[in-house]
Design a protein around this nucleic acid. Structure first.
Lengths: 207, 207
DNA sequence: GACAGCATGTAATGAGTTACATGATTAA
DNA sequence: TTAATCATGTAACTCATTACATGCTGTC
């Protein structure tokens, strides 16, 4: 019996909304958590079994044709555990940005590589943003799949849209600057955007 | 001999700037990578040995008093490997945001827990932003520790400052809304910020 | 001479991924 | 009938963390 991780509780939260079969869960994990808590399907299959071992969910077997299908339901103990977990603030956001390593040390490589990295970041952000907007337009039009949860979904949607928009805007800004740089291996002879080191607007200092 | 990971290359990039002792490396990893590629000190000690095994760096032993000290230097093969790695665009940003799980499913918990989570996120963002600004003010005033690298540092600084500013602003916005909500367990009777589902400004659609 | 913190690691453990396996159903 | 994809996992592996160990250096 494995310890409970944030991933366990993420699944438990989904089960708090309604029961799901494991396959449905993997789809829902993709739809819901892909944006800020990505995990592979195989882990979902392992984790729900762990929830059952902890007594936080029950498994009910059924079948489609000759094929077995397991449906998971949260237990009262599961709801209690979930509420206890919700009372702990939780961490993040935690950023992991491999491309930014390459950007921060671009002076050790070639100028064209820096431009290619920035373009990749921008394209990734643009396509992620477009995907997210396709998902949110459904919420705007018909309230989406769970209108009774629209208020909390709005909070997360706002963050994610602004986040990916920021990434795209920043990459574009960086591309415009690097385009004008004659070289990257040294700062000398380059018009450095010193505003980058200043507090962004809006910003209020709260000491 | 372990395979090379992005972490290996991150250390190799630091060695590309100048040689460091392992302890200095841990300090520099903290200063440089804490913002977007956090790793524990113990991993640094393991990874530099791996770089040597791959022939990408050399270790030179010296001593402070009776204590051994190892200084690592990049090799020509190391520089070549680093440049090859820089030519691959790289991934990210990858977001991991545990608190957002709790926010997205706040309807399964208590209203006060949601407010506490949002406050924690805001405070964390504010203090991270303040830390980052303390570090950047040094760059503005005297060019910082490596003025010859100021142009690429400006690119990363801009992203990080705007990112943490966004987090703080968003959390504040969310707090203001939830403050006015009479309950959290259902959307009914709540003034939902539907703008959250719309594209943020500025936004240009590129199909 | 004791204690904090500087400095340098090693060993055990773990959460998560990758790779693999396989049967059932549906579309061409 | 073949191929795709739906559906459900297991086993091996890995990157990284946690916990531990230990000697040195300055200072109270």
């Amino acid at each position: 019996m494995r310890d409970l991780t944030p991933t366990s509780y993420a699944l438990l939260a989904l089960l708090g909304v309604r029961p799901w079969s494991t396959y449905e869960l993997t789809k829902q994990v993709d739809r819901t958590f892909r944006w800020y808590w990505r995990r592979r399907d195989s882990l979902v299959y392992a984790e729900v079994k762990n929830l059952v071992e902890h007594g936080l969910a029950t498994a009910r077997k059924s079948s489609t044709g000759r094929r077995l299908r397991t449906t998971y339901t949260i237990t009262p103990r599961g709801r209690a555990a979930l509420r206890r977990w919700m009372a702990i603030p939780g961490t993040g956001p935690d950023l992991e940005f491999e491309a930014l390593i390459k950007i921060a040390f671009a002076d050790l490589g070639h100028r064209d590589d820096l431009l290619a990295t920035l373009a990749a970041v921008r394209q990734n952000a643009e396509s992620t943003l477009a995907q997210a907007l396709r998902q949110t337009s459904d919420y705007l039009d018909h309230g989406g799949p769970s209108p009774e949860r629209l208020h909390v979904i709005a909070l997360t949607a706002k963050f994610l849209l602004e986040y990916w928009n920021l990434v795209a805007e920043w990459a574009q800004w960086a591309e415009r600057h690097v385009d004008r740089w004659p070289h990257v291996d040294r700062a000398e002879g380059i018009d450095i955007p010193l505003d980058a080191f200043k507090p962004p607007r809006p910003w209020r200092h709260t000491p």
